[in-house]
Design a protein around this nucleic acid. Structure first.
Length: 581
RNA sequence: GCACCCAUAGCUCAGCUGGAUAGAGUGUCGCCCUCCGAAGGCGAAGGUCGUAGGUUCGAAUCCUACUGGGUGCGCCA
């Protein structure tokens, strides 16, 4: 299924044979032996570093090992040639039938070509978005949502058992602020003049919430103190906000498996239990923290607090878990939440945060490390800022309080597919420029268009071939005589297709879905290049009039490209285009 | 002050968990676009991979120290 691991197995087999023949000493580790595509295609199809990795432990010259290995490898029918190059690289050329076989495999396996068992069913929890339930999602959340969702899909595709989860911060003081803001909108809905002071959310999105409340309650809460309405209104408001957020996510095509409420942790003893767990390990104590150097707050005074000894697990300073009034800090329920995730049996945790939460990474890792006894790894991916542009100019919404660029603003303008793809054209830890005009441009500069165009071109070829009376279904194309794909340009595309399964695995290992987007751009580039050559060389066109056998083989290649593009876009959550307009 | 992230072609960025002469788009320059599947195509120039050390067969990649930019830093989540 993965050509590179197949060839690597062949290399290992040959090395084993060399050991058996005493050409290599026994007891060598082959773990570092790699088979990779060479940077420069002129070097061949694949290269292995086996000789260089083994030279030192085997106490042999790399070139001697390489030459002996080359002889063994060349005996395999898949290997066209094996040449020693440079300090001891072994460059392999595969026979055309290998590349032709890749095309057949893609058609046979369809979207599952590239699917991997690498994850071995490991249970991974991916937590992302987790925006406070106090308003609609904005652009920053959008990037986190797209990244987290694509990462989850990528992990699923590479054999992990993935749970997509959203943590609702509905326990803190910001929910009081929300409730009071809704109360003002409630009064407003009943005809009162209200003023939004500092410390309330003035956004328009609360108007309908206030109206709904007015319809439900009538004037029962007018003039009443907070003690009457605050508790109930907290629930009412967060429910309304979560409905809003769910709808935002749906507009982007994001679907969560679990929404986990912070509030649900309170009163259940879960927080206490998690803290006790840490206390039992001697990680909870009363103490006084040093003031931060350089930027000491004006009102700094030493205070004794209940602290978590996060420094025992790699943090820089210990962190407070309890406020002086005896309430928990925000960190305590977060510890309990991650404790809950560990208790639910996940083998690995991933949190996707905005870059402004960077300072939170070490303490969270420390907590999970302590609570799981170091058994459950927590990877925290930070998504950097999104800078918005329109026509090359920085784009800003009006400064009026309460307005910001929302997920809806973006999705309504460019659509979910473009939004998602563009958000993944940069690695997560690099800032991203998003230009409302450029992302819709139809040019090679725009990767979204370029990839979609490649897919649409394939669809268009198949449509026209069908109109001309050719059979174009996958079963027929899959049975094509692929030995007719003998041109270098065609084999180059097949070679690119063969990299897909390997790319999935490396991207998944690094938790970096952007690599999928870049691969698709390259694959589309190779496909467009082949298409363009058809302009000068009619023999390279996909449909050859009057020669159905050759046409089938060429259409099989095109179809294979579309299958892989479609699978890749599927991971990114983007719908492949059937035609361009 | 400390921590984390970043620094690669004029510009925007890749670089596959250490591999060969560091890649792409864009921009610049040259050629092609009467017929053909040109929302273009072919080619060229363009780099001390922030600086200085170190690790080793081998470093853009790992380590250390600097320089420059971003983010964060005790009862806000």
């Amino acid at each position: 299924m993965n050509l590179f691991s197949d060839i690597r197995s062949l290399v290992i087999q040959s090395l084993d044979a060399m050991v058996a023949e005493s050409a290599l000493p026994e007891g060598l580790s082959f773990d570092n032996v790699a088979v990779e595509p060479p940077r420069d295609a002129a070097h061949g199809d694949m290269a292995t570093n086996a000789a260089m990795v083994l030279a030192k432990p085997a106490r042999l010259k790399p070139r001697d090992i390489a030459e002996a290995l080359a002889v063994k490898l060349a005996a395999d029918p898949r290997i066209d040639s094996a040449e020693v190059a440079g300090p001891g690289f072994l460059n392999l050329r595969l026979t055309p039938s290998v590349w032709q076989g890749v095309v057949g495999q893609v058609l046979q396996l369809g979207p599952d070509f590239g699917r991997s068992e690498m994850g071995q069913g490991v249970r991974v929890n991916v937590e992302y978005v987790s925006a406070n339930p106090t308003g609609p999602l904005h652009v920053g959340h959008t990037r986190g949502a797209v990244f987290g969702d694509a990462l989850a899909s990528l992990l699923d595709y590479s054999g992990h058992d993935v749970t997509r989860e959203y943590y609702i911060n509905d326990g803190g003081a910001q929910v009081d602020v929300l409730a009071r803001s809704v109360y003002l909108r409630y009064l407003e809905a009943l005809g009162q003049d209200v003023a939004f002071e500092d410390g309330t959310y003035p956004g328009d999105y609360l108007i309908p919430v206030g109206q709904a409340l007015a319809e439900q309650k009538g004037d029962a809460w007018v003039g009443q103190p907070e003690s009457v309405w605050l508790e109930e209104l907290r629930d009412f408001a967060t429910d309304a906000m979560m409905d809003l957020i769910r709808a935002d996510l749906a507009a982007l095509g994001v679907e969560m498996d679990v929404f986990f409420s912070e509030k649900s942790l309170y009163g259940t003893g879960l927080i206490e239990k998690a803290i006790e767990e840490l206390r039992a390990k001697g990680l909870i104590y009363r103490g006084v923290l040093e003031p931060p150097k350089g930027k000491t707050p004006e009102d700094w005074e030493p205070r004794e607090q209940t602290l978590f000894r996060s420094t025992a697990h790699g943090d820089d300073v210990d962190r407070p878990i309890m406020k002086s009034d005896g309430g928990w800090t925000y960190f305590a329920p977060d510890i309990a939440y991650h404790y809950d995730k560990v208790s639910r049996g996940f083998d690995a945790l991933i949190d996707v945060f905005g870059a402004d939460h960077g300072g939170y990474v070490k303490r969270m890792k420390a907590a999970v490390s302590a609570l799981s006894g170091g058994k459950v790894p927590l990877d925290i991916k930070l998504t950097q800022l999104v800078r918005l542009f329109k026509n090359g100019e920085p784009f800003k919404m009006s400064k009026r309080a309460g307005t910001f660029v929302t997920l809806r603003d973006v999705v309504d303008q460019v659509g979910p597919d473009v939004t998602r793809f563009v958000m993944l054209t940069r690695k997560n830890d690099a800032p991203l420029d998003f230009d409302f005009d450029k992302v819709l441009e139809q040019s090679r500069e725009n990767p979204v268009f370029y990839v979609q165009y490649a897919h649409a071109r394939v669809m268009s070829v198949l449509r026209r071939a069908a109109e001309a009376g050719f059979a174009t279904d996958d079963a027929v194309l899959g049975a094509a005589d692929l030995s007719k794909l003998d041109h270098r340009a065609e084999l180059a595309v097949a070679r690119k297709l063969s990299e897909w399964p390997r790319l999935v695995e490396t991207a998944a290992r690094a938790n970096e879905p952007h690599r999928v987007a870049f691969y698709l751009y390259e694959l589309a580039g190779d496909f467009h290049a082949l298409w363009n050559r058809g302009n000068d060389t009619p023999g390279l066109r996909f449909v050859q009039d009057g020669d159905e056998a050759t046409s089938r083989a060429k259409m099989a290649l095109a179809r294979a490209v579309s299958v892989v593009i479609s699978a890749g876009l599927g991971i990114l959550g983007v719908t492949p285009a059937q035609e361009m307009r």
